[in-house]
């Protein structure tokens, strides 16, 4: 098992996954034309991590922008983690960060929270 570190770009987020800490971070903006290609490495990492996860897993999502192509990929990421949680392999916590006046990011968090069945913390901050 290895860590996954993907640097951010103008259209893709920073991704940091640490198997030893059981911690994942998605940060920045995710607006590529085809998000599936970008998120594949994260799917692969989670699949590998799921074979031997930590007892607790934490994911921080701190996105400034994301497009609808990315929204379906993000949901797939969360569903993979949800499986870990449902199968009691790891207690997964989602931390969804959004800026206090960003109603769209707030609503997006609520959308994911409504679909996913695991602890989902909406974290309002002054600035991301």
């Amino acid at each position: 098992m290895s860590k996954l570190n993907i640097e951010s770009s103008a259209k893709t987020p920073l991704i940091k996954c640490d198997d030893e800490l059981g911690r994942l971070t998605i940060e920045g903006r995710s607006i590529p034309e085809n998000a599936v290609d970008f998120f594949q490495r994260l799917y692969d990492w989670i699949d590998e991590y799921s074979k031997s996860p930590k007892s607790k897993t934490e994911i921080d999502v701190k996105l400034e922008y994301f497009n609808t192509s990315s929204s379906k990929c993000l949901l797939k990421v969360l569903k993979k983690l949800e499986t870990l949680n449902v199968e009691s392999k790891s207690a997964v916590n989602v931390n969804w960060f959004f800026e206090e006046d960003d109603e769209d990011m707030n609503e997006a968090g609520q959308d994911f929270d409504a679909i996913i069945s695991m602890p989902f913390n909406m974290v309002e901050v002054a600035e991301l």
Binding site: P32, E33, N34, A35, V36, D37, T68, S69, S71, K72, C73, L75, K76, D111, A114, I115
Partner: peptide, 19 residues
């Protein structure tokens, strides 16, 4: 929105049906 988000369908070009 939630219904289409949850259908998991993404076209080959990355379209989500949510635009």
């Amino acid at each position: 929105y939630r219904e289409i988000l949850d259908d998991g369908i993404v076209t080959d070009k990355g379209g989500s049906g949510l635009g």
